[in-house]
Design a protein around this nucleic acid. Sequence first.
DNA 1: TAGTGGTCTAGACCACTTG
DNA 2: AAGTGGTCTAGACCACTAC
Lengths: 247, 247
Amino acid sequence: MTAKSSRSATPKRGTTRHGELAALLKQRVYAGEWKPGALIPAESELALVYGVALGTMRQAIQTLVEEKLLLRHHGRGTMVSRGLTGNTIFRFFRFGAALISEDMPTARILVKETIATPEELVTIFENRPRKLLLVERCRMIEGLPRLLEKIWVPLPAFSALTRLPGTAWADRLYPMYAQRCNVVVLKASDHLHVRPMAAAESAMLELKRGNPGLVVRRRSFDIKGHCVEVREALADANEFELEMPVY
Amino acid sequence: MTAKSSRSATPKRGTTRHGELAALLKQRVYAGEWKPGALIPAESELALVYGVALGTMRQAIQTLVEEKLLLRHHGRGTMVSRGLTGNTIFRFFRFGAALISEDMPTARILVKETIATPEELVTIFENRPRKLLLVERCRMIEGLPRLLEKIWVPLPAFSALTRLPGTAWADRLYPMYAQRCNVVVLKASDHLHVRPMAAAESAMLELKRGNPGLVVRRRSFDIKGHCVEVREALADANEFELEMPVY
DNA sequence: TAGTGGTCTAGACCACTTG
DNA sequence: AAGTGGTCTAGACCACTAC
């Protein structure tokens, strides 16, 4: 059959048909043919087009679902992920409240300036950007200053934000990045550690001098896996709380 | 066909054939028919025995693999998990070393006694045990005391350990539980928070008074999902370091 | 070489969502 | 009612492991 002959025509070792298909589908997302939030063709149709059995195409799609690139909904279809919604740094903290609701935090912008890329950040972003936008803000919960945050994003990719006044910034940055800069954050990685706060930091957060601070350093990645944002958050380590599985 | 008629004979809603099979296989592990480390029959044989297609049986096995109950090895077979090997609390800390090797930590037993079950622990263990074995130890790295640990295990399930002299205790507890108490730890969950150390604690760890401490409270679960151990570890919060994905 | 899990096919039917 | 993903079948062949 056609499928069989085409398979023997490409006897690549170490690859599978569904693996190749996954790569092909991923390319179509990268190329922008299927945009975030849009439904892709039905798996039955894709199977026909690519000349493979349904199960094989399902397997290819499944790997992209596990990579969080696609989302499947029974009866509705398969769509490209809209990415993370953000605001998850608070998951590490109690802050008195039993549960921090989605809309509680508000942010006050302290600094917003264009800077030359610091040496330690040059290699983190793609294309070695020469300039970055640096934003510092203080996030409040129930009127109390709880979290200091620094955000670095590369220019000119995020230049739409330099023109945006500080008062117009949304609490959640990821949806704003998607809307104004056309950047979808699909994955992120947090690095946590504890250090004593500097005098200025503890003062800002209304804590005693030398109070231990928990630092969350986050790198955010777009749909292609490129780092598009570095963030550093600082808060009272005594409010830190985390539950995690052991494997 | 037989399969079809038997399916219509049990028109349970909300269940699937592979889901039922997974439950049946799980039962055979619980019953001890297939012991940890042993190979289970080939999926082709199981499919024959249960009268289902190969793919369906594969799907059933796959769910148990994702639950960490089974492990598959291409060409070798499918075996029941031997459980966690432990010693992973150090993954949260730097302690100067670039990487903490598997064999570096050594432990000194401070306390080992049978106690009446404290109220807050009664409901955590299965069968509300009346007595527990409490062990306190100090774990060293390169000769320095780095971590204080309290361990609670239920009696009489772990009574083999009460007869074991403190000097005979292994660094890694999970393999010892498996060997001496016939308890396999399959999963665990860590809860982390930061608090100031008490004077005695900071003295033991050779830290200054009021040094922030990171507390890791771990609950370990056996093959049936029952809690079989509670552990609380305390160490210098300034040595804490953790990298984790964001979803 | 025999036996295992992994891939793939070509269907059928079921369960869910939407107009 | 039409279209989607989810389940299931009954095979074939491939890739890996151990004897």
